[in-house]
Simulated assay, not measured.
Amino acid sequence: MKHSRNLHKDSYPLTQLVQSYPALQPHVLIKPDGSKTIDFANPNGVKALNAALLSHYYQVKFWDMPAGYLCPPVPGRADYVHYLADLLAKDNQGEVPKGKTIRGLDIGTGANVIYPIIATRSYGWQMVGTDIDAVSIKSANAIINSNSVLTNDIDVRQQDNQRHIFSGVVKPNEYFNFCMCNPPFHQSAEQAKAVSQRKIQNLTKNKTKRGSHLSAEKQSATLNFAGQSNELWCEGGELQFIQRMIVESRDYASQIRWFSSLVSKKDNLIQIYKSLRELGITDIKTIEMAQGQKVSRFVAWRF
């Protein structure tokens, strides 16, 4: 189940979403039983759905990104934010801290700047997003500057050195209550492409049986699972990225209270725990998040 505070824990209220974001209407389909849905293999439909969710629930009226950049599922992203809020609550007499005194750092915020949006609109936190990609930074700034509800609460910074994660973006004497990260999880472009192809096949399999035009579906799904190289893969995959993050976190132990990262591959946890223990870190949390049949998790640590 999704987090209890996740605004998207129930089915999508498509009628209300269309009222908040009329551009979603062309993508709404009527199922044989009369209920409404959208075509999740259509990247434009998925993008419109996410924009509608952000408009309806978070009052973000402009949300767009360049073609070829990842379009994140808003409900799953919200879970990470809410479970982090629970972690902060444990140091606050069980109450989730709200307001601008809480500052969060999003490593790899992307062109969509989705985590800072959800965090600041849900809890009023101040957020800083970082990314190595100049186009992502430009897109994130366009979203922030186009929405008055975000302008004073989110800042984005470009990381100029791909070898660094915190160095160069965390300023001297700056303090964050937490950092979060959705690391590139593939080890190579070939591996990322293979996974995308499997997703395409799963999405188009049933439609092929019904006689849908397969090539159009494949083209659509390919776009839907597109992403820039830095979003999808890095040398050593997510394990090596998180291990670099752990090593560098030691130098920022006094500036960031909780470090955290999503871990998509459960098998990586053993090596991650080992890397943390080698630095003498004993306060480690692993928090699982369920999205239907899929279980994801993040690891959090502090010095």
Rank of each mutant, 00 (worst) to 15 (best):
Y115N: 00
L29A: 05
A194Q: 14
W301Y: 11
G227K: 12
P66N: 07
H82G: 05
T204A: 15
S275D: 14
N224I: 01
L53W: 02
P22I: 04
A41V: 11
N177D: 15
Q197T: 10
N152R: 04
Q191T: 11
G94K: 08
N161I: 04
N224L: 15
Q19N: 09
Q16T: 06
I272V: 15
S254K: 15
I118D: 01
H27I: 03
N152C: 00
Q16S: 14
F40A: 09
I107P: 01
G99L: 09
K36S: 14
I284D: 11
A48T: 08
V74Y: 00
I154W: 03
R103Q: 11
S136Y: 10
A78H: 09
G76F: 04
I137Q: 12
Y123G: 06
V170Y: 11
C179E: 06
G124P: 06
V60L: 10
N6Q: 05
E190F: 04
P66K: 11
C71R: 01
I242G: 06
K193I: 02
G227Q: 11
H56V: 09
W125Y: 09
I117E: 02
A51R: 13
W63N: 07
Q255M: 05
Y252V: 02
P32V: 10
V60I: 11
H82K: 04
L203N: 03
A67C: 00
V135K: 15
P116D: 01
L232R: 08
T101E: 08
L7E: 03
P32A: 14
K98P: 00
S215R: 15
K36W: 13
Y115G: 00
A52R: 12
P183C: 07
R5E: 10
N6E: 07
Q93K: 15
R163I: 00
L49D: 08
A78E: 13
I143Q: 09
L54E: 12
S296R: 08
S264I: 13
R77M: 03
W63T: 02
K266S: 14
F178P: 07
Y115S: 00
V263N: 12
A119P: 01
L70P: 02
W258E: 05
I242S: 03
V74F: 01
N44H: 13
A78D: 07
F176A: 03
V74H: 01
G108C: 04
Y80S: 05
E278T: 11
Y252K: 04
H164D: 06
I281K: 12
Y21E: 05
P184D: 08
S4P: 00
R198F: 02
F303H: 15
